[in-house]
Simulated scan of single mutants.
Amino acid sequence: MGGGELYFQRCRWCRTAVFRRLLCPVCASTDFAWELSCGTGVIRHVLAVRRSPGKQCALATINVNEGFWLCSRVIGVPPLIVRVGAPVCLAEGIESGPQGLLFRLCEPPQPPSR
């Protein structure tokens, strides 16, 4: 990971997508291949967390489009604005990195206009 990229593992035996695992949760294999994620997903669970006096952040469980989930902070909006089901995109920036994945709310895909 780095530079706004999100890599995940896919089991070579059963094709299950996972994030930072040693064993596949489906078949218990240790044989994984690394793949690059598109970096988009949907919020499954969200919690407003107080980081320091007067500062809160949104900590969310995100279902990533490739089929795995992860926990991350959602930045760019007040924590109480972040809702379950909201689409999110991987954020690029100074704070992002292997230990600090950050996501932002993004617009849902629009159907093609005629």
Rank of each mutant, 00 (worst) to 15 (best):
M1R: 00
G2K: 00
G2F: 04
G4I: 08
L6M: 12
F8D: 15
R10H: 07
C11T: 07
C11I: 07
R12T: 15
C14R: 07
R15L: 10
R15N: 12
R15S: 13
T16L: 05
T16D: 01
A17F: 07
V18I: 13
F19W: 07
R20D: 13
R20M: 11
R21W: 01
L22P: 01
L22V: 09
L23D: 01
C24Q: 01
V26P: 03
A28W: 15
T30N: 05
F32I: 11
F32Y: 08
F32G: 08
C38R: 14
C38L: 09
C38P: 06
G41M: 08
I43Y: 02
R44W: 14
R44K: 10
H45C: 10
V49N: 04
R50T: 15
R51N: 03
R51V: 13
P53H: 11
G54C: 12
G54Y: 11
A60H: 03
A60P: 01
T61W: 06
V64S: 00
V64G: 01
E66Q: 08
E66K: 07
E66I: 01
F68V: 05
F68G: 01
W69V: 05
W69C: 02
L70A: 13
C71D: 15
C71Q: 11
R73W: 07
V74I: 15
I75Y: 02
P79M: 04
P79T: 14
L80W: 05
L80C: 13
I81G: 02
V82Y: 03
R83T: 10
V84Q: 05
G85E: 06
G85P: 00
V88G: 10
V88A: 08
C89M: 10
A91I: 02
A91M: 05
I94T: 11
E95P: 01
E95F: 06
S96C: 14
Q99P: 00
G100S: 13
F103I: 15
R104K: 14
L105E: 11
C106K: 00
C106W: 00
P108S: 06
S113W: 00
S113G: 09
S113R: 02
S113Y: 01
